[in-house]
Amino acid sequence: MGLGSLQHDGFMTTRLDKVINWARKNSLWPMPMGISCCAIEMMATAGPRFDISRFGSEVMRFTPRQCDVMIVAGTVTYKMAKVVRKIYDQMPEPKWVISMGACASSGGMFRSYPVVQGIDLFMPVDVFVAGCPPRPENLLRALLELQKKIEKERTIGKLVHGERIHIPETGATEGASTSA
């Protein structure tokens, strides 16, 4: 019996990676890291008009333990960077980051001493969103881009081939610095 005959009975064959990625990408629970005005647009994205739940990401969780994607929405100061990083570290793997808006992505209009000139200086970022603040459509686009990215990831393959999932060092908040 070939696999082809199974398909007629409501079965299909695929790779396990694909199934896992399909499940992951359609239920990305966001960590709403709303630290300034971008958060308002993020809330609008969650509201009925733009409705982020169409893409499976309506479950905003306020504990990092239950989140998959951190949406950093706002100006990150040096003082706040430690907090953002700590919350990111507390999220379980696999995890992704959307850097929403000009401030989070590059410091934005705050080219001055207290503002981190882009959150990629202290944490990994998957998708950057332009705008000040970005329209909700723009954030949804970022989510779709992230979903495309997740589709291509290796999941079970990583384990089978002995690749270790990257776990960041804990307590990594001291010592390192940047030249502003």
Partner: peptide, 21 residues
């Protein structure tokens, strides 16, 4: 003290630590 006139706009390098990437 950042609002003193002799403090540079972009701050003193390495004076504010960031978390390690």
């Amino acid at each position: 003290f950042p609002l003193r006139k002799d403090f540079p706009l972009m701050g003193i390098p390495d004076s504010l630590p960031l978390p390690r990437k």
